[in-house]
Design a protein around this nucleic acid. Structure first.
Length: 647
DNA sequence: TTTAGGG
DNA sequence: CCCTAAA
């Protein structure tokens, strides 16, 4: 099957200003055109040419493209053959769409620009891959199976919905897209034979080409996704994204995994890199990251600054309807000062949220909360029968850029209307975290109580909303008189339609597994919550990398450096995870090659990572925790010789 | 406040 | 993961 990126052009909002982002590659020059939101619909082309709606998983994949709008420009050596797509945001109708609120259109188009260029690159890579396959490789079964003669075919269609707006620009955009792969969509039988002309057509094609060449020559990787079974891929997927997948397509899984890892700007700065479906380790050891960091800074810094600038302007545009809300518009130059994880540094730098003991507050929350276990689905849970609740969410600012998002909720209960202005900074390209949990919050007590809490909400919202819902919860559970409602498991598919309008996204990358919060009984009779956030592969890699550069034990340092973008994952978490990693790496040292398919339930950490863990552990003369492990003895004299005696 | 270690 | 003692 092929995938089509259909571009609709909507003209429902034409008064956006042109803010002068470089979009030359689109041939877009008139402000008017920029202003028109572009809506992408993700569809799939079946073998017979039918268009079918994309599946959820595909949609999810699309979202990842936006996740890393900055880093994805990096070359991905990727064998994917089916899916090239863009996703911006899912609208209520389930379609993907990008809406450009005023003042942020430029940012979006910047991203769109990057996205399109990225697609170009991807296409080139696909072709390159194809060439390689033709020359030296046995075909992958799944590929042979494709009914379509041209499994690599990418069709980019552009449909222009707008009636009166100037759409002449859009076709040019389309043609620029089609340019790269026009021969594919045009003639079916050519697709497996990329011509030189195609290679040259892309602006960055030559660069991609050379990059690919060098990449393919590096085969010292230890993890080869191609060799994995579906099951293993599923497991890897699980570690990588923290969620399960139902997709059976090996190719898809491989691409997803490789993509995620590669696109993660955090990972890219680590010693692990993804090349050609393999997780390999950079040759240099822990010291040679300077280059990577520099590159990243160069790539991202301007963009970030740009976005941030818009940020403030967007702010003014929206107006702070409440003085209680304080913004820091401190921006960016220190974004990338650590070289990675530059997403949230501003927030991290300012307004440091003290890591309160969430469990305590959750305890109190539990006490004040009705014993009713969260049976109903999220939002409308605490809308009592007698409560007439009208609420709307107004979004100004763009959710997909580092911009604050204003939510104004009007709750009318008992005749007294309460306006709850909230400000949330949505991470750039990480709009997924539910701030809907904020809107789910409904004061049950007296209106006065709610009012007094507005302040708290507003103040905390600026920094909490973009983070873990837990923190939001904390913020509002402090007053204590309210009945906070936690959005426990918010499955996208089950969400009320209303919710889908929000930029609330499930992070397909790392946060996808919504925190599964289990309440475990404590000795003192109380109930404490146990958050569980599956460690994703990316996180593990970051952790390992952090340890490699800071040394084990300096967890706060590591957290600051590598985990500043992850609000959860305290330094203690890092330490714990490291401990587990250590245990894992030593426990099954001479295990089967490739993936550790050991005890079910244990995360299948890729061997190279465990290997690295061992190295680091021995470097730091860290003794494996469980000394009595029998495997350990066996491992000491193993033929691998990858780790000299560590005893 | 952070680390180390037990649970 | 949580909790706590110790630094």
């Amino acid at each position: 099957m092929e995938t089509v990126v259909a571009i609709e052009h909507n003209d429902d909002d034409g008064k956006l200003e042109d803010i002068g982002v470089d979009r030359s590659s689109f041939s877009l020059s008139s402000p008017k055109q920029i202003a028109n939101p572009v809506v992408y619909k993700l569809v799939r082309v079946e073998g017979d040419g039918r268009l079918v709606p994309a599946t959820d998983d595909e949609v999810m994949e699309m979202e990842d493209f936006l996740e890393h709008e900055n880093s994805e420009m990096r070359v991905v050596a990727d064998t994917g053959q089916s899916l090239e797509c863009i996703s911006i945001e899912r609208s209520s109708s389930g379609k993907l769409r990008l809406e450009c609120p005023k003042g942020t259109a430029d940012a979006d188009f910047g991203k769109l620009n990057a996205k399109l260029q990225y697609i170009e690159q991807m296409l080139q890579k696909v072709k390159q891959e194809e060439r390689l396959r033709l020359s030296c490789e046995s075909p992958v079964p799944s590929r042979v199976k494709k009914d379509n003669q041209c499994s690599d075919d990418k069709a980019v269609t552009v449909e222009n919905n707008q009636s009166d707006g100037p759409h002449h620009e859009i076709p040019s955009l389309a043609s620029s897209l089609n340019y790269t792969h026009s021969n594919q969509s045009g003639s079916v039988d050519q697709c497996s034979r990329p011509s030189e002309g195609v290679i040259e057509s892309g602006s960055s094609a030559s660069a991609v080409y050379s990059a690919l060449k060098s990449n393919f020559s590096m085969f010292d990787g230890e993890i080869c996704l191609d060799k994995l079974s579906i099951r293993e891929l599923h497991e890897l997927f699980k570690v990588t994204f923290g969620r399960e997948t139902t997709v059976k397509d090996k190719q898809w899984l491989k691409r997803r995994i490789a993509m995620s890892l590669t696109n993660s700007r955090d990972v890219s700065a680590t010693t692990f890199i993804i090349k050609d479906n393999k997780i390999v380790r950079k040759c240099e050891d822990s010291s040679g990251n300077g280059d990577a960091e520099d590159v990243i800074s160069m790539e991202n810094a301007p963009v970030e600054a740009d976005v941030n600038l818009k940020d403030s302007s967007a702010l003014e545009g929206c107006g702070t309807e409440d003085n209680q809300v304080v913004f820091e518009t401190k921006l960016g130059k220190h974004d990338m000062e650590h070289g990675l994880g530059g997403e949230d540094h501003q927030r991290a730098a300012k307004r440091i949220r003290k890591p309160t003991k969430r469990y305590i507050e959750e305890l109190s929350e539990n006490e004040s909360r009705e014993p009713n276990p969260m049976a109903s689905l999220s939002s409308s849970r605490n809308m009592g029968p007698g409560l007439s609740t009208t609420s709307y969410v107004r979004l100004s600012g763009d959710a997909s850029s580092e911009v604050r998002t204003f939510i104004t909720r009007v709750d009318s209960l008992g005749g007294s209307d309460v306006q709850v202005p909230c400000v949330s900074r949505v991470r750039r390209s990480h709009p997924r975290k539910d701030f809907t949990s904020l809107t789910k919050f409904l004061p049950i007590g007296i209106a006065k109580t709610a009012k007094s809490d507005n302040k708290v909400l507003a103040e905390n919202g600026s920094c909490a909303a973009s983070e873990n819902p837990d923190k939001i919860l904390k913020a509002r559970s402090a007053p204590g008189k309210l009945q906070p409602v936690r959005a426990t498991e918010t499955l996208p598919s089950c969400e009320p339609e209303k919710e889908k309008q929000l930029p609330k996204r499930v992070d397909p990358l790392s946060h996808t597994s919504e925190d599964s919060i289990v309440t475990v009984p404590t000795a003192k009779g109380g109930m404490r919550r146990k958050h569980h956030r599956a460690w994703t592969l990316v996180e593990v890699m970051k952790l390992v990398d952090g340890v490699s550069r800071c040394g084990a034990g300096r967890w706060s340092e590591i957290k600051r450096l590598s985990f500043s973008s992850h609000s959860y994952r305290t330094s203690v978490d890092l330490k714990d995870k490291w401990r587990n990693l250590l245990k894992a790496s030593f426990a099954q040292a001479p295990a089967d090659e490739g993936m550790n398919v050991r005890k079910h339930g244990t995360a299948p950490i890729p061997e190279p990572i465990l290997l690295r863990v061992r190295e680091l552990a021995q470097m730091n003369s860290q003794a494996p925790p469980n000394f009595s492990s029998s495997k350990l003895v066996a491992g000491a004299g193993n033929a691998h010789g990858d780790r000299p005696g560590y005893l």
